[in-house]
Write a protein that binds this DNA or RNA. Structure first.
Length: 772
RNA sequence: GGGCCUGUAGUCUAGCUGGUUAGGAUACCGCCUCGACAUGGCGGUGAUCAUGAGUUCGAAUCUCAUUAGGCCCA
């Protein structure tokens, strides 16, 4: 009997042919019907080379979701998109061409960004395809396409008309390196070394002084008041007194406020516009008039007097010197201070009052909480990230950005009276470069307009992804069928941005939640558990790994190593060692391929035993697949295939399958059971390793793709776990005994079979060559 | 400062509705060509289950404190 499979190992090169076949046969094509499973696939962002190996793992798992759903009989809509709006590509382009955005002509700069994006995007598409992602590549979308941007703009125009958008002059987080306002969500915190300066402030008309500690002495010129804790007895006599600010000699009042901590510094705190978020809250609460000490260029303004024009850090150094010279310094401590930093440019942000557009969100928080409660989270613990974020939102969403590569805010201002005008929705507008489509100002009838130059926060684009993929406003019939989406898979670090903003926007625009399930994954860390980054040099390029080991190896590694929802470590050696399992599966199949596939057989005791173990496996996998937790089936299938099926069952029935000293009926029982078990394993494994299972399936069982099969269901056979343990123990005992007697495995030996294994006697005897 | 999550052999992890010789994978060491597989088989080394205390006849598993890490917020 020649095996149908002759090659001794799985060759990842075969994956390329299989991909081609899938493409030709269009087996993943989507046509909407009445019961669709829509995946709101995260469009990856091309920010540089190489693409993150953690992202490759992430997309592999998203594909497992699609394949699981497909095999569960669902009509799967799996769109593929690329997110192309935003700051990172601008920074990449500036660096690549050694230019500065603001010193380059806008159209020219946009073209350079586009080219960079095209290159980076090509690499990502290549990786996604090689991974076997069963998405709709033929219709992939870009968030910077006219179609997408016009959706973003239309939804904005809609909200504008509903009065959800307003312009406000408020203290904003300002990143002066990027030259833009940033949302709270884009701020990270880092512990930075800084100096805590203890300064002497004179109390007016007395010879007394109080000590105030601050890390921002350059903001003395913007100091409006000094606060102490109401319980702080050190200052109780001076409440309401005028205090003279050193250097500037201005007078401010000493007041009490609970936010001043007695134990910090001297207990007295100067309140300036704006040192930190607490200052912002105090200015608002105490209705103080702000002093703008730092300008949009990130330098001190004229109110800083002789420090004007300096960067805050330089001004700080200089003012400390001057304070020391003038005798205002009591002492200076070096401390580590938790400082808010721009996530993108990594520099400390400044808080500067600016006029920006806001989208109302505060009054929606209750509604968002309700929707959040309705959505199933996988794993459930990550719902907490959203809930915590909802608890802590305290301002509306600033949506305008002073950048170039983004969706333009579609507003024109009347040149005469400055009245803002929004155009009709449905088209893509570029106000910085286009004539206003409105002919006369609605207020003063003037015909001259100035186009808005700012762009939207990129989350304004990304947050309508469920609407874009479902052709909202473009194809009502299609929209009705695929919206709301079934599932949103995404990484856990963007729950408070992408996930939250999507809930907010989609609910505002459709009155419905965007999806019923959210599937949240952790980050890929390097082998030491550190976050991967290009600057640290610990980033792993996924492409060579996939090319060398094959997509299935990579995918099985991702399923078997990543505990769903938790951060995971990427280690090339571990990915490589996963390959062994595919090799095992290959060889099991190679062995079985030497026996004919038969439809039925009468199972013996051994066959019934392995079928009960198989049924247990099916149950276990079903549990994992229902939660889209691929760790469960991956581990269970590997354990069963290797350590139960191959190690014990196949060895037990080998002689029977060959028909040596067994009847035809007994032989058929073995062959039938062997194939039934393997066919089941292949189906169970198909969502995780689509290539090798497809290849083996087609050679052994059917011309029709395994990915068009229904997943197997369990039959509820009674478990025989006790037998499994006994068999493994008995086999181990025999192997050990032969070893200690220096016998070869094929040599005969006399060992008593335990009573419980009596029904398996004939198989065990032939397996170990046992003497009576 | 507050919140959420986590801490099991070098590494990844199972077990955590209390009672297991703490299971598996990987790495490492030794032996072995037995008609699927040396990308294999068999055997072995390796864990005071982060630390301390408590509840209990009994705790990796429950409670509290401490500590370390991750993420988030202020």
């Amino acid at each position: 009997m020649e095996p149908k499979i002759s090659e001794k190992a799985w060759n990842p090169e075969l994956e390329k042919n299989i991909l081609k076949q899938w493409e030709e046969e269009k087996i993943y094509d989507f046509k909407p019907n009445d019961d669709n499973f829509t995946i709101d696939t995260p469009p990856p962002y091309p920010s540089g080379r190489p693409w993150h190996i953690g992202a490759a793992a992430h997309y592999s798992q998203i594909d497992m979701i699609a394949r699981t759903a497909r095999m569960a009989g669902k009509n799967v809509y799996f769109p593929i998109g690329i997110d192309r709006n935003g700051l990172p590509v601008e920074l990449y382009t500036e660096k690549k061409h050694k230019i500065r955005m603001r010193e380059t002509e806008r159209g020219e700069f946009l073209n350079l960004c586009k080219d960079a994006l095209d290159d980076l995007e090509a690499e990502m598409i290549l990786i996604m395809k090689s991974l076997g992602i069963s998405g709709d590549f033929a219709n992939y979308y870009r968030t910077d396409s006219e179609e997408y941007r016009s959706l973003t703009q239309s939804t904005f125009i809609d909200l504008w008309k509903k009065g959800e958008v307003y312009l406000a002059n408020r203290p904003n987080n300002y990143d002066w390196v990027s030259g833009t306002t940033i949302a709270d969500a884009e701020i990270i915190y880092d512990d930075l070394q800084t100096k805590l300066v203890y300064m002497k402030f004179k109390i007016k008309d007395t010879d007394k002084e109080i000590i105030i500690a601050s890390t921002r002495p350059e903001l003395l010129c913007a100091c409006r008041t000094i606060i102490v804790n109401p319980d702080d007895e050190r200052y109780s006599n001076y409440i309401g007194e005028k205090i003279i600010v050193p250097i500037t000699n201005s007078e401010v009042e000493l007041r009490t406020h609970h936010s001043a901590k007695e134990e910090f510094g001297s207990g007295a705190v100067m309140v300036c516009s704006y040192g930190d978020q607490n200052d912002v809250a105090l200015f608002r609460e105490l209705q103080l008039e702000e002093i703008v000490a730092i300008g949009l260029d990130g330098r001190m303004t004229e109110v800083a007097g002789e420090y004007a024009g300096l960067k805050p850090k330089q001004a700080r150094t200089k003012i400390i010197e001057d304070l020391e010279t003038a005798g205002f310094v009591e002492k200076i401590e070096d401390i580590v201070h938790r400082t808010p930093i721009s996530e993108r440019s990594k520099i400390p942000i400044e808080i500067i009052p600016m006029e920006e557009y806001y989208l109302k969100q505060k009054e929606k928080i209750g509604k968002m909480k309700d929707i959040g409660k309705e959505i199933t989270f996988h794993p459930n613990m990550h719902k907490q990230i959203l809930m915590n974020w909802l608890e802590s939102i305290n301002i509306d969403w600033p949506i305008s950005r002073r950048r170039f590569y983004g969706t333009e805010i579609p507003i024109w201002y009347c040149k005469e009276c400055s009245e803002p005008h929004v155009p009709e929705p449905g088209k893509y507008y570029r106000p910085w470069n286009e004539k206003c489509p409105i002919t006369n100002c609605t207020k003063c009838k003037s015909t001259e307009f100035i186009g808005e130059e700012r762009t939207f926060d990129t989350w304004m684009d990304s947050s309508v992804s469920p609407l874009f993929i479902s052709k909202f406003n473009r194809d009502d019939e299609f929209f009705k069928k695929v919206y709301p989406a079934s599932i949103r898979p995404q990484a856990k670090d963007i729950v408070r941005t992408w996930l939250y903003y999507t809930l907010l926007r989609c609910e505002e625009l459709t009155g419905e939640k965007p999806w019923s399930e959210a599937w949240i994954m952790g980050y890929g860390l390097d082998e030491k558990g550190m976050k991967m980054s290009k600057s640290k040099g610990n980033a792993i390029d996924p492409l060579p790994v996939i090319e060398k080991l094959g997509a299935d190896t990579f995918r099985f590694w991702s399923a078997s190593e990543i505990n769903h929802g938790y951060d995971f470590r990427c280690n090339e050696q571990k990915i490589e060692s996963t390959k062994k399992f595919l090799s095992k599966l290959w060889n099991v199949s190679r062995f079985l391929s030497s026996f004919p596939v038969i439809d039925s057989g009468i199972p013996t005791a051994s066959d019934k035993w392995i079928l009960s173990e198989l049924d247990k496996l099916v149950k276990e996998c079903k549990k994992g697949y229902e939660e889209y937790n691929f760790f469960i089936p991956a581990i269970a299938i590997r354990e069963f295939t290797w350590n139960v099926f191959a190690a014990h069952y196949i060895e037990m029935v080998k002689a029977r399958a060959y028909g040596i000293d067994f009847s035809d009926e007994e032989r058929n029982g073995a062959i039938f059971t062997l194939h039934k078990t393997l066919a089941t394993i292949l189906k169970l494994l198909a969502p995780i390793t689509p290539f090798i299972t497809e290849h083996l399936w087609k050679i052994l069982y059917s011309n029709e793709s395994i990915h068009q099969q229904k997943q197997v269901n369990f039959e509820d056979i009674e478990e025989q776990t006790e037998i499994t343990k006994e068999i493994a123990e008995f086999n181990s005992k025999v192997w050990n005994e032969k070893k200690s007697q220096n016998l070869s495995l094929k040599d005969s030996i006399k060992i008593e079979i335990p009573e419980i294994l009596e029904p398996f006697k004939k198989d065990l005897k032939s397996m170990h060559n046992l003497l009576d």
